[in-house]
Design a protein around this nucleic acid. Structure first.
Lengths: 209, 209
DNA sequence: CTGGCCATAGGGGCCATCCCCTATTCGCGC
DNA sequence: GCGCGAATAGGGGATGGCCCCTATGGCCAG
């Protein structure tokens, strides 16, 4: 089984490589330190599996996943996520990842995840499964409360401390339109003011703190 | 040189151990998976150096650092921080850490940091130095524009999306007082609205995003 | 082609935020 | 004791955020 490892931390790549090379049937065919490198390497080398960290420079693991799945759909993707961070789970699944492993559990779950992917099965850690179930229950059946691109763009600008007027000028819109998009985004997310929006934007990685 | 490694991810511990054991004069005398274990091990074993991840269960790396420095001040501490996360830099230095290394640069900087600490020098990555400089500049030239404890407390509550009225109730103050503290904090920091305050609070580690 | 979603835009109203003031009471250092 | 900064509290006013509506044009799926 040919595997690609992508993580911006050399230390983490070493740890994973160490873990995988104890398996006789797994061969690490490459490493990447950012998302762009990861996707181009995966598309060129067509490994059986690409293990991608969520948080990487240039392209995030999720963006890289979309790119890989578009140009080389036969490559399976496992998303590796930092600490107890399950917030990208949905995005990962939507992007076409076969599994989602938290780094805190990586040393025990990663091999299990690889074996599952090898058999063509999806893999979610018990925590991820719980998150998925909780969220489906929260959103109600079928309800997909995603922000539209325009809403996300405006949330980003709001979180960067631009006023409604400034945003209207930047995007060449009326203040009213900006206000409507902001209000719609807040309603979808169940938030009451710009402060909550800022924290949302930072959690989502839309802006830097 | 006797070194202790503490990180809640087995993968990361393996990576660091691998890196260190290539050095003939460095001996890894133990590993810890949480902050409590790390501090008690450091206090019992008195290594020359404890490498602590910021984010660990039970005690954070910063809390563990304070504990170690209180009970075994001769143990040097290197703080290892996730991704590009520099917001704990000040707290780390205040807690008595000798260095602050970002994991993204760990494979190149960690050894340099260890050697610096061995010579009794502090170690900051270039990024951390830049953060430090930016922050000094942010505070104004020469002016020690620190927030008072009350101001910081109120900034924290503002950033947690509490309204002025709610904060007044929580702290048993008049809304006017809360407003004055918030305004003073904003003036000191050169900020124009609550949104900027939120990002400041997150950078400072006053709140989680 | 009709219904739904998105992006656009506006009216009107309420209240919070933000900015300019003043003022009192502490405690701390010189 | 005197000055100073911190914490407390308030007045008044301009502006902006937030919420309730309506409405139109474009585009895509059923």
């Amino acid at each position: 089984m040919r595997v690609l490892i992508a993580d911006d931390h050399g230390i983490v790549r070493s740890g994973i490589r160490l873990l995988l090379e104890r398996q006789s049937d797994i061969e690490v065919i490459g490493e990447a330190a950012d998302g762009a490198e990861a996707s181009s390497l995966a598309i060129r080398e067509r490994p059986d599996l690409a293990i991608l960290d969520v948080k990487m420079p240039k392209l995030t693991g999720l963006q890289a996943t979309r790119e890989i799945k578009r140009q080389a759909p036969e490559v399976s993707v496992l998303i590796l996520s930092m600490h107890d961070d399950e917030r990208y789970l949905f995005e990962a699944l939507k992007a076409g990842a076969s599994g989602y492993v938290l780094k805190a559990q990586a040393d025990t779950d990663l091999l299990a995840a690889i074996r599952a992917v090898e058999r063509g099965e999806p893999f979610l850690t018990p925590e991820a499964q719980r998150t998925l179930i909780r969220d489906v229950l929260e959103r109600g059946p079928g309800g997909d409360e995603d922000l539209t691109p325009r809403e996300e763009e405006i949330v980003k600008l709001v979180a960067e401390a631009h006023t409604t007027k400034q945003i209207a000028e930047i995007l060449h819109l009326s203040e009213k339109t900006v206000e409507n998009h902001r209000a719609n985004a807040m309603r979808k997310l169940g938030m009451r003011d710009r402060v909550e929006l800022v924290r949302y934007a930072i959690r989502r990685g839309l802006i830097e703190p």
